[in-house]
Design a binder for these strands. Structure first.
Length: 592
RNA sequence: GGUCGCGUAGCUCAGCUGGAUAGAGCAUCUGCCUUCUAAGCAGACGGUCGAAGGUUCGAAUCCUUCCGCGAUCACCA
């Protein structure tokens, strides 16, 4: 029951009365700041149904609305735009109706269907970096937004714990590690394993160079370097279940998981269920065999199995090797089906994976559709742009990465030094301060990443670092802290309803309009899988509040009614900031 | 070469699926702290929305072509 719906009916009614024509719809937009009014009806589209000049039509409709709709106090027409002024009492009524509502804007009833959101899904041979951070923040936030829009959500990740990459780390550790453990070296587990991944690559490159020196062709050398052959042998042993290899694998993966857990905790992300590639990599083969019988797939002479997607504008794609083993695609088919088996209420999945895999997911979704799964219509690849450095792509092997743990620490340090300079934290214990620096540092980082459209690539310049002023997380957190300060001083916040006869200040009215937009913002963000919409909404809200705060005295107001309303309004804005930021996984501070 | 994505102020980004004079932040410059937190507010400066056509009363937004950047086209994952 929004104002717009009401007005739509009234405008249709007006046109029917005036011109005996039934309009299919009415187009609205917020009134531009330079004109008087709150909401604007665009007259132009009506010209298809009503003959006449737009100004005249607008004027007549406006007169009708003023006469027949209580909330409309006056109207004016500029060109083909009918600007409508809404009564203050309408906004005050709206405010009263939501004031005591918790989590205003969230849909509280939960759908029966569930959505599974996959994100993170790292390899277990190296620590997480800035690219993973974008992935994690996006996935987590989209999951929270979907929840707030009324969906049941499972958060998951598939951990790529097997394959040649982890064997490389294992082998290098065996060769050069001398028994080093996280305990013995004090190194975080994932960093320790990553160190040996880099060591492997170094040794591998040296061997290639030696072979080339001795006259081998480069391409051949890359395939025949002894250390690579050893790693491949190790993978074969792992697949055969060799005790020694498997136990080393378990040990080193264990170190990595401990390290990841710390990073996830620092980032504030979590998962409901986990899948491990070592459990799922064999899945999918039966499905392919079944699909082969049903003619979805076809077999080539060498025994490999393919799907022909040329009619869909794609190519042929392999789904089973000639030796009968699974490829990446087979696995993903199997895993998807497994997930629905495990959680029968799933009707839809979101895969948070970089845009370099656009093609893979296009194919995957198409295959699942062709296999006839009803839920295959509800799959979405949350594709995001890479995070690049000024020097180019990040590469773990070459050490040109922005490490996740380092970056988080960095942000906290910056927050700490700014905070200390400002010196507003008298009375805070060291522990409280540390907590606050973390809140602000992470707030800056998370907002910085989430405010941009997922599709766009981000160029991250470590030198310039992330801002703390302007359109940033700390700016919004600061506004929240200010509001809390007011609320602490206004010890007697009345929860009683506000008199609807109050005359609104322009800034108050703008704030109320912005508040009204929150529910639809959440829905829009959910439909578009875009945390950026929530971030930008919050920024607009906060800007509006700061402007209000600057121009209007809250606690200094002598009229008790007005003062009480302003305090209540501030409180509500604070709550909104908090719940919007919760959707982004960002905390808000009581002081800063 | 085929396919997909991106291109808006010096820099970083918005622009609600076609509406009025394209908006913010950073940077530069100017004001505002004996009054609720100046990580703030108010203002100035800054644009042929990559280019050219087309559709429309109306285009940054939709269509076509071209240019630039990126990704992808593996019996790797």
């Amino acid at each position: 029951m929004s104002l717009q719906n009401d007005l739509t009916q009234k405008v249709i009614e007006a046109v029917k009365q005036l011109y005996q024509v039934e309009l299919p719809s009415v187009e609205f937009q917020p009134t531009r700041k330079d004109f008087e009014g709150d909401i604007t009806v665009v007259v132009f589209p009506m010209l298809r149904h009503v003959k006449g000049n737009p100004v005249q039509i607008g004027t007549q409709i406006g007169e009708y609305l003023v006469a027949n709709v209580d909330e409309v106090s006056k109207c004016n027409v500029v060109q083909g735009f009918l600007n409508i002024v809404i009564e203050d009492s309408y906004y005050l009524n709206f405010f009263n109706s939501i004031f005591s509502e918790n989590d205003f804007g969230y849909v509280k009833s939960q759908s029966d269907d569930a959505v599974m959101v996959e994100y993170s899904s790292p390899n277990t041979n190296k620590p997480l970096h800035l690219g993973h951070i974008r992935n994690n923040l996006l996935g987590y936030s989209v999951a929270e937004i979907l929840k707030a829009s009324g969906k049941k959500v499972y958060k998951t990740q598939i951990i790529n714990d097997r394959g040649i990459h982890i064997c490389k780390s294992m082998l290098a550790w065996q060769k050069f590690g001398e028994g080093e453990t996280p305990e013995s070296s004090g190194l975080k587990g994932d960093h320790l394993v990553g160190k040996y991944y880099v060591a492997f690559d170094k040794a591998y490159k040296e061997q290639i160079a030696e072979l080339v020196e001795a006259g081998t062709e480069k391409e051949k050398a890359e395939k025949e370097a002894p250390i690579l052959l050893e790693a491949q042998e190790m993978l074969r042993k792992w697949e055969a279940g060799d005790d020694e290899v498997v136990s080393l694998w378990k040990k080193m993966n264990g170190w990595v998981y401990e390290g990841f857990d710390v990073t996830y905790k620092n980032l504030g992300v979590d998962f409901d269920t986990l899948y491990y590639e070592s459990d799922t990599y064999l899945l999918g083969r039966d499905v392919v065999k079944d699909g082969l019988e049903r003619g979805v797939f076809f077999k080539k002479e060498d025994g490999s199995v393919w799907i022909d997607l040329t009619e869909d504008g794609l190519d042929e794609k392999i789904v089973l090797r000639s030796d009968g083993t699974a490829v990446y695609m087979t696995q993903d088919i199997g895993t998807a089906i497994q997930r629905v088996t495990d959680h029968p209420d799933i009707n839809g999945m979101v895969y948070t994976v970089g845009n370099e895999q656009d093609y893979h997911f296009k194919v995957l979704f198409l295959i699942l559709k062709k296999l006839g799964y009803s839920w295959a219509e509800q799959l979405y690849h949350l594709s995001y742009g890479m995070v690049d450095l000024p020097s180019g792509k990040m590469k773990s092997r070459e050490g040109t990465v922005v490490d996740a743990d380092d970056l988080i620490q960095n942000m906290e340090d910056t927050a700490a030094s700014i905070s200390q300079e400002l010196g507003k934290l008298d009375g805070y214990s060291e522990e409280e301060k540390k907590q606050l620096y973390r809140t602000i540092g992470l707030g800056a980082l998370k907002y910085y990443i989430l405010k941009v459209d997922p599709k766009k690539r981000i160029l991250f310049n470590p030198e310039e670092s992330v801002d703390f002023q302007g359109n940033t997380g700390p700016f919004i957190q600061y506004t929240y802290a200010r509001i809390q300060s007011i609320l602490r001083k206004a010890d007697d916040v009345k929860s009683s309803a506000v008199e609807t006869s109050l005359e609104l200040h322009e800034k108050e009215k703008e704030l109320l309009k912005q508040i009204q937009l929150f529910p639809e913002t959440i829905q829009l963000a959910a439909e578009n899988f875009s945390p950026a919409l929530v971030a930008n909404y919050t920024y607009d809200l906060v800007k509006e509040f700061n402007s209000f705060y600057q121009q209007v005295s809250i606690l200094g107001e002598t009229d008790e009614q007005k003062k009480n309303f302003r305090v209540q309004l501030s409180q509500k804005v604070g709550e909104l900031i908090q719940s919007a930021f919760r959707l982004l996984g960002i905390d808000v501070p009581e002081r800063m």
